[in-house]
Structure formats: structure tokens, C-alpha cells
Simulated scan of single mutants.
Amino acid sequence: MRDLLNSIHPITIIPPGVATSDNTPVVSAIVDRLGYGSVTFVLLTGSLADADATFAVLLEHGDAANLSDAVAVPDALLVGTEALAGFTFADDNKARKLGYVGGKRYQRLTITPTGNASAANLGAVAILGHPANAPTSNPPV
């Protein structure tokens, strides 16, 4: 069967349209993978007004619910790269993705602008997959 809907659980971790107008990092909500075997992060851009801005991506993980023990995820535990998940001013209305295959329960995504002086509209979703109990609820709770 080709059903993906009943096997995923999307969570908004950076609400759509979060706009940063400087170089302040945008830090996502913490993702709890309890009950799921995988997670993929989808980053979304809207209008990126500054003509020389770049946006770097960092994924952290840890065992503490508040991520007080957060460390950068080693490249070997990523599907894709943080560099490929990053973007520039030229990437209006695009999507990027980054997968995590590590064993830590909690993850957090940070998008750090450089050279940004105008509104940059961002958003991100964590898609939890391989649920211990399927089907997943719809709408997600």
C-alpha cells in the first residue's frame, strides 16, 4: 500500500511566517521522538528580502527534555547535510530537508542568518515517522 499519511506525525517547530530582520538565530521548538523511529526536518522559506543574506542550519540532539545537554549532531547521524539544508537570499519560497538517524530522544533546529537586514520569512516542520503505534491520528495531536 502507498499510504504515508497513517505513518507520519508532522509537528510545526517554527511557525509559518516567522520573520527575522537581523542576524538573530531562529531556534525551533524541541522535538520529542518518543514512539517514533525516525524524524525528518522540512525547512520552508517565504520571501527573503535581503540581497546578500545566507542562512546556516544546525541540528542539535540530547537526552534531556529541555535539551540542557544539547550538542551538535555528528554528520554520520544526518541524512543529507546541514549545508544542503541551508539557503540564501535567492531561495524564496523553497523547501529544504534534513534527516536524523541518531538515537537521542530530543532534537532542535537552529537557523542562523548572516548579512540579513530585511524580513526573512521562515518556517519548519518535523515529520516523525516509523511510529510504534499506527495509524497515526489525523489531524495530528
Rank of each mutant, 00 (worst) to 15 (best):
I13Q: 03
A132V: 15
R33D: 04
S137N: 07
G86R: 01
L43G: 05
R108P: 10
H61E: 15
T40H: 08
V73M: 09
V125Q: 05
T20A: 02
T136E: 13
A65Q: 04
L67V: 09
G17N: 09
V101S: 12
L78D: 01
T110S: 12
G103C: 05
D3F: 12
L44D: 13
R2L: 10
D69I: 08
A70W: 02
S47H: 07
V18W: 14
V42W: 11
A124K: 01
M1G: 15
G62C: 04
P25Q: 06
D75Q: 13
L67S: 08
A56H: 05
T20L: 03
E82S: 11
F41T: 02
L77Y: 04
T81W: 12
D22V: 04
N121K: 15
R105S: 09
Y106D: 07
A119D: 08
G37Y: 13
G103N: 14
F55H: 01
P25E: 06
I127V: 15
A53R: 04
L4M: 14
P139K: 15
T40R: 15
L109N: 02
L48M: 10
L58N: 10
T20W: 03
G37C: 08
V141H: 05
P15V: 12
G46Y: 03
V26L: 11
V73N: 02
R105I: 10
L98V: 03
P74L: 06
S38P: 11
P74G: 06
S21R: 12
V18S: 11
L5F: 13
G129H: 05
T136M: 07
A70E: 01
Q107G: 08
